[in-house]
């Protein structure tokens, strides 16, 4: 058994007075794909966003408990969110490339973190990231064109390239395919399997099939509670909880 890369202990998250996450403890394994599933409003996105402290940007959002990444409490007062978010990258539901060129989109992260010492090094990083996201062949001749001019699926892969350009350990994906057609979705799913060799991926998804296809581990959330967490194959074939069974067979949710 490998050591977990993320350990959450008794996490409670509140929006104002309303509790969104109830006392969740979960361990995420390195270099695997973990899927968070559950009906809308169950708190899975909120929980995902707490892993790189994106919830800090929401007013009135408060967190209790401990989240350890590499045995370091990311909510400790001395932790700076900037290196944390460089280590724990995020891909969002709607593709959100910057209104800049494709090259600048990918180069932005390495630039602000000072990862490239020279221009040629920066180009190497950008090329590697675009190859890593499977976009290189499609855009190598038009790196100076705006990223917003790409198709939806390409934009989402550009966002993935942007994230991996800063070499994170963990990539959080918040319903990355919900705005994409099935073909683009298939490409992203193949890409995720590929990326899981180097990165720990946590994905929130509404699609049961997607969770079954790409993830090794699945966690089922309902009304802010973590109902069940286990191997994906076991969850989809032989869930321990009746509520999990009901949800994945489509009887509620």
């Amino acid at each position: 058994m490998t050591d977990p890369v993320v350990t959450c202990k008794n996490v409670n998250i509140f929006y104002g007075d309303k509790q969104a996450i109830n006392n969740i403890s979960i361990d995420i394994l390195p270099k695997t794909i973990t899927a968070f599933i559950g009906p809308s409003g169950c708190g899975k996105s909120t929980f995902l966003r707490s892993l790189n402290r994106m919830n800090d940007t929401i007013d009135g959002c408060r967190m209790e408990g401990e989240i350890l990444i590499d045995n370091e409490n990311i909510y400790a007062p001395e932790i700076d969110v900037v290196p944390l978010r460089a280590r724990v990258g995020m891909v969002f539901q709607k593709p959100n490339p910057f209104p800049k060129s494709i090259f600048d989109n990918v180069a932005y992260g390495p630039k602000i973190h000072g990862l490239a010492k020279s221009n040629s090094e920066l180009q190497t990083i950008v090329e590697k990231a675009l190859k890593g996201s499977g976009l290189w062949e499609e855009v190598k001749d038009r790196l100076d064109q705006p990223g917003t001019g790409l198709s939806g699926g390409q934009q989402q892969r550009l966002c993935i390239a942007r994230t991996i350009a800063v070499q994170p350990e963990i990539i959080l994906m918040d319903e990355p395919c919900s705005a994409l057609d099935p073909i683009a979705t298939a490409r992203i799913e193949a890409l995720m399997t590929d990326l899981a060799k180097d990165y720990t991926i946590i994905i929130v998804t509404h699609s049961m099939q997607q969770a079954a296809r790409v993830s090794q581990k699945t966690a089922f959330f309902h009304l802010g509670d973590l109902i069940e967490y286990g191997d994906t194959t076991q969850m989809f074939t032989n869930p321990r909880e009746s509520r999990t069974q009901d949800y994945i067979t489509g009887r509620f949710g």
């Binding site: 790189n52 994106m54 940007t57 969110v81 900037v82 290196p83 944390l84 978010r85 460089a86 280590r87 990258g89 995020m90 891909v91 969002f92 709607k94 959100n96 490339p97 910057f98 209104p99 932005y108 992260g109 602000i112 973190h113 966002c159 942007r162 994230t163 350009a165 800063v166």
Partner: peptide, 23 residues
């Protein structure tokens, strides 16, 4: 300005000020 743009920058580790002034 759509918050998604700023989220994108914050998501790869831009500081609040960088996200604001760059995007």
């Amino acid at each position: 300005v759509p918050p998604s743009i700023k989220d994108g920058a914050l998501g790869i580790g831009a500081s609040e000020m960088q996200a604001t002034f760059h995007h």
